[in-house]
Amino acid sequence: MDATERIQAASNFLLQSPPGEINDVLNDVRNIISDDDLLQEGVLPALREYNLAQFMTVDVPGTEHQSIVSEAARISSSESGSEERFLDPRSKTSFVFDHLSLEASDPQTVEPSSESEPFRLALETSTLTYLSAHFHDGVASVFSTQETPNRFVIQVVANKYNPTNYWAGRWRSEYFVDLNENKVSGKILVNIHYYEQGNVQLATTHEISLALPPAVVTSSPSSSASKIIALIGDEEGKYQISLNDTYQEMGEKTFKGLRRALPMTRQKIDWDKVLGYKLGAELSSSKGVFGNS
């Protein structure tokens, strides 16, 4: 493999990292590639891609809260060559993000669009209430989109890392609220890694879309936003409960169908008999051969 292919392979490994294990994967990859100079330059795009896709959380300088680093948080800049910046709409701060150390720096105040800010703020308030009601360690960000007015992005992420007990988990949800088309669409992604003497992973995807009832859209921003979040929260709760049904179905249909707990006889196998039957069958078949001759 040449250098480009090695970086390609290393990047591919990094993008598959389970929740909270990117540093462990990076350590393994460093040892395997054993060329730090090549790696340092080469894997930055993969780290950036991973952070954006996984809704990496960051402490926002000068605030007491965290915000989400994602494609929606990226500030598209017209100047080429300028450093990439991300937005925390809650504190109206933009910052530069280091994809390796996961730290934010160079905070700057950003003036929100006066047109979309009232509804964005209403959505944010409802989202944060919902977040603290249903997530143990959740972070949420609500963005208005620069290109399309009346279109908002809600992102939620909750992480739990427990390396001492060999497990980690991540819940991500993302919703596009479109008031031009009166529609909400989004997805819930759950990833769980359990790795005590093994490697077991749960990966779920759940895509949803909903046409908003007229009553929801025509209310005041705060009432409309809280109704939208109530609909989303309801759907997420239902999804979480429906996972139980899926588990039950997998346990009863698939798992049992693959291998029984015990044979039909409800007893373990009598191995002497198994061998005896086989030998007996062999003997009688050879008797048959002798009898016919």
């Binding site: 093994g198 490697n199 077991v200 992973q201 749960l202 990966a203 779920t204 895509e207 949803i208 879309s209």
Partner: peptide
Amino acid sequence: GWKREGEVSLSGSM
């Protein structure tokens, strides 16, 4: 009103 589509995958080795 909701449209849903999803997948649950449990995989691994011990």
